[in-house]
Computed example of a mutant assay.
Amino acid sequence: MSRASSSPIPLYLQIADSLRDRIARGVWQQGEIIPTLEQIADEFDVARVTARQAVQLLMSEGALTPQRGRGTFVSATAPTLKPVQVVTTLAALVEMYQATTQQLLTVEENRRRPPITTADGVLAEHYVHMKRVHSSDGLPYCVISLYLEDKIFSMSPDRFREELAIPTLVELSPRSIAKARQTLTIGSADAETARLLRVPTDSPVARVQRVFNDLENVVIYYADVVYRGDAVKVEMDLGSLPVKNSS
């Protein structure tokens, strides 16, 4: 299995990411010996020194432990995320947020207008912008840049700063939401997002853009949410094919 040499990410980081994923998925169990450096180098078609760098990185993270004369063993099971279900209604979205325990870290707050298009609606005069990291059990799973119309934010600034924005918005001003929609796309993490999510740069991510409008089509809430690729679950009921009568 050859690694993509054209990637801007160093080879040893690419390999470390693959090895880390094996631990997270349980392919390599805690207490199990991993392949030798020579075997890893052969598998990824790299030099032995590159394989060593990847393994040493996981050692520094505490995921692997060398034992003299025996080899290198999996010392800890990588933390796993409970997947976030992609829902398709506002009610289900509120219910999902209310049913989860999350830690919020605000990394930026300022006055800024959302980067909307004319198709999204009409801009209000002022917005409050907050950039946050959402974590579950101490593990970050999404970075969100959200914009709230200033009039709504001023209803309860402390709550909007300390609690999840959507359930708070629905509770404080439910009639303000005349229309709500979201778009899901797949991409890769930039350097800043990767740092906040603790994943390698260019790791797969799911990007969700949400727009809420009032009766006058004014955008009262806009959010750009970037989820770790391993934190998203999309499940759809496709139904069944009609059974043909063979008689």
Rank of each mutant, 00 (worst) to 15 (best):
A4L: 15
Q14V: 01
D17T: 08
S18I: 07
L19Q: 04
I23S: 01
Q39I: 11
A41T: 01
E43T: 08
R48K: 13
T50Y: 01
Q53S: 15
A54R: 00
L57K: 11
M59Y: 06
R70N: 10
T72R: 08
F73Q: 03
S75R: 07
A76Q: 11
A76R: 11
T77I: 11
T77P: 06
K82F: 11
K82V: 13
V84H: 12
T88Q: 14
V94M: 04
V94A: 04
E95R: 12
Y97I: 13
A99I: 07
L104K: 09
L104A: 08
T106H: 06
N110S: 15
G121L: 01
A124Q: 09
V128S: 05
V133L: 06
G138F: 04
P140S: 04
C142H: 12
V143H: 07
I144D: 12
F153Y: 10
M155A: 11
S156V: 02
P157G: 04
F160W: 00
F160N: 04
P167Q: 02
T168P: 03
L169K: 01
V170D: 06
V170C: 09
S176A: 12
K179R: 13
A180T: 08
A180P: 06
L184D: 10
I186Q: 14
I186H: 13
G187T: 06
D190T: 05
R198W: 08
R198M: 12
V199G: 02
S203K: 03
P204N: 03
V205K: 05
V211E: 05
D214F: 04
V226W: 09
K233Y: 11
G239E: 06
S246F: 14
S246K: 15
S247H: 14
